[in-house]
Each structure stands twice: as structure tokens, then as C-alpha cells.
């Protein structure tokens, strides 16, 4: 208890582990890009042929930021939940008997997983530029930096949610349930793939409590210059949400048992 709570060396070590594991899992890397690719190329082109414009932009452009958000959401939650495997396979015990504070362990895990999600998001961003969904001509380096920082914020928030779920679940059976009950609704209601201006009021209202909605909307603001809310509002809501999730994740994680 005499140790400091934030131990940079330990945080870096845990981050490094995530990087090594990510670099070695080729199937995971390939799998992460299949869905965004299908959404952009098949849905973007297919649905785009019938939907003339969505909020003043082409459908392909409209879903570009949505697909980036989706990719970050999926990979973040999955990464966070992977702590459950660390418990199942015993590696968590090894970490928990070292003199590293629980806070540092949580931060290391969030940093590592969020970096992986950010890399995923960056590749999808590149893909949207390649298929012309996001117009490169109007984007400055400044836009890009803000977009990346904002994507990192989205990733940290959802990695934390994954961690919270993992520290509360006792086995891996609940995992599929979480995906269906939480991740898919978050994705659909966020307006990632359809505009929110013509939907019924009830759906508009529900979408206000979906953190991903602010994430996707903020990305549209930066990348397309057209969004539902001002960018600063999206940033404020998402920032507050992310801070709350990191705090809750730290708490639930420190109460967690070392094994399942």
C-alpha cells in the first residue's frame, strides 16, 4: 500500500504486452477489417444507389465516420472483455501478485487495448479516404490530429466498458449475451448507418443516451463538416462519459477476484 498508484514502468509493460499479442494475431487483424470493408464497399455502394442523399451528403460519405465508429466500438469492447481470458488462463494471477497497483494495471490495459482499437480505426479511416467516402481535399493535418485524438477517446471509453463487463462476469458464457444486448443496440441506435433527422422522435430521444452517437457525430463534424450537434458538445459529452467509465472500471477491477 506504500507504492505509488501510477507506475509508468508497469503501465508501459502491460501496454507492450498488448502490442506484442496484437502483432502476432494475424487472424484477429484480418477479421477486424472484414466488417468495415463490407459496410463501406457493399452497403455504401448498394444502399447508396437507392438513397440519394443523407443530410446533404452522399450515403457513402455519410456512413464513412459511422463505420470508423463501429470498428472502434467492436474492437474496444472485445479487447476490454479479453481480461476474462487472462483470468481464465491464469495470467491475471501472475500480474496481481506483482507489486503493481491495481490502478496501474487498469491504465496499462486500457492504454494497450485503446491503442489497438485506434490502429483499427486508423486503417478504416484510410479505407474511407481510399473509396472517397471522406473527401481528402477539405481535410487539413489539424483535422486529422483532432480526429485521431477523438477516436482515442471513443476507444478508451468502450475499452473501459469491456473491462467493467469482464470484471463483473464470472465466465465467458455471458459474452455472447453482452454482444447482443449491448454492443449491437449501441451500434444501431447511434445513427452510424442511417441519418437521425427523419426518424421518429422516440428513436431520436433514445439515441441521446448512446455514447457512440456522440462519437460518430463528432467524427462527422471533423471529417465531413456536417453534424447533428456542435463538435464541442460531442467532445464534452464523450469526454465526461469516458472519465466516468475509466473510474468505474478501476473500481470494479480492484474488487475483482484473480481467478474465475
Amino acid at each position: 500500500m506504500t507504492m505509488e498508484l501510477i507506475q509508468p514502468g508497469a503501465i508501459y509493460t502491460l501496454w507492450l504486452r498488448e502490442m506484442i499479442r496484437f502483432a502476432r494475431s494475424k487472424s484477429r487483424i484480418a477479421g477486424n477489417f472484414t466488417m468495415p470493408f463490407l459496410w463501406l464497399v457493399v452497403m455504401g455502394t448498394g444502399l447508396g444507389a437507392s438513397i440519394q442523399s443523407a443530410g446533404g451528403t452522399s450515403y457513402l460519405s455519410f456512413i464513412g465516420p459511422g463505420v470508423i465508429g463501429m470498428s472502434i466500438l467492436f474492437s474496444s469492447i472485445f479487447s476490454g472483455v479479453s481480461v476474462i481470458w487472462d483470468r481464465q488462463f491464469g495470467f491475471m494471477k501472475e500480474i496481481l501478485v506483482t507489486p503493481v497497483s491495481r490502478v496501474s494495471i487498469v491504465i496499462g490495459k486500457i492504454a494497450g487495448s485503446a491503442t489497438i482499437s485506434l490502429v483499427n480505426g486508423m486503417v478504416v479511416l484510410l479505407l474511407t479516404l481510399l473509396v472517397g467516402a471522406v473527401p481528402l481535399s477539405t481535410l487539413t493535418a489539424g483535422h486529422m490530429l483532432v480526429a485521431l485524438a477523438f477516436m482515442a477517446l471513443i476507444a478508451s471509453a468502450f475499452v473501459s466498458i469491456g473491462l467493467i463487463i469482464a470484471s463483473l462476469l464470472n465466465n465467458t458464457e455471458g459474452f455472447q449475451l453482452i454482444m447482443n444486448l449491448l454492443v449491437m443496440p449501441l451500434f444501431f441506435i447511434s445513427g452510424a448507418v442511417f441519418p437521425m433527422d427523419k426518424v421518429p422522435d422516440w428513436m431520436k430521444t433514445i439515441s441521446l443516451i448512446d455514447p457512440l452517437m456522440y462519437g460518430v457525430d463528432g467524427l462527422r463534424g471533423i471529417l465531413l463538416g456536417a453534424s447533428r450537434f456542435p463538435f464541442l458538445l460531442d467532445l464534452a459529452v464523450l469526454g465526461a462519459f469516458c472519465a466516468a467509465m475509466v473510474a468505474i472500471a478501476t473500481y470494479t477491477f480492484s474488487k475483482m477476484k484473480a481467478t474465475t
Binding site: 507506475q7 508497469a10 508501459y12 509493460t13 506484442i20 502476432r24 488462463f89 491464469g90 495470467f91 506483482t98
Partner: peptide, 27 residues
């Protein structure tokens, strides 16, 4: 130091990486 009854290594990492990680966590 402790060796648990159940395995507690990271399967994806090499032997050296597992040991290195441990050393780093102990500063």
C-alpha cells in the same frame, strides 16, 4: 516468488518475453 498450481504464462509470448515482462513489472 510463486509458481501457481495452474499455468499462469502468456501462451502467445515467448519464454524470454514472459520472463522479461515479469522483471519489468518488478521494476
Amino acid at each position: 516468488g510463486i509458481v501457481f498450481q495452474d499455468q499462469s504464462l502468456d501462451d502467445e509470448l515467448t519464454g524470454r518475453e514472459n520472463m522479461d515482462m515479469h522483471g519489468r513489472l518488478y521494476g
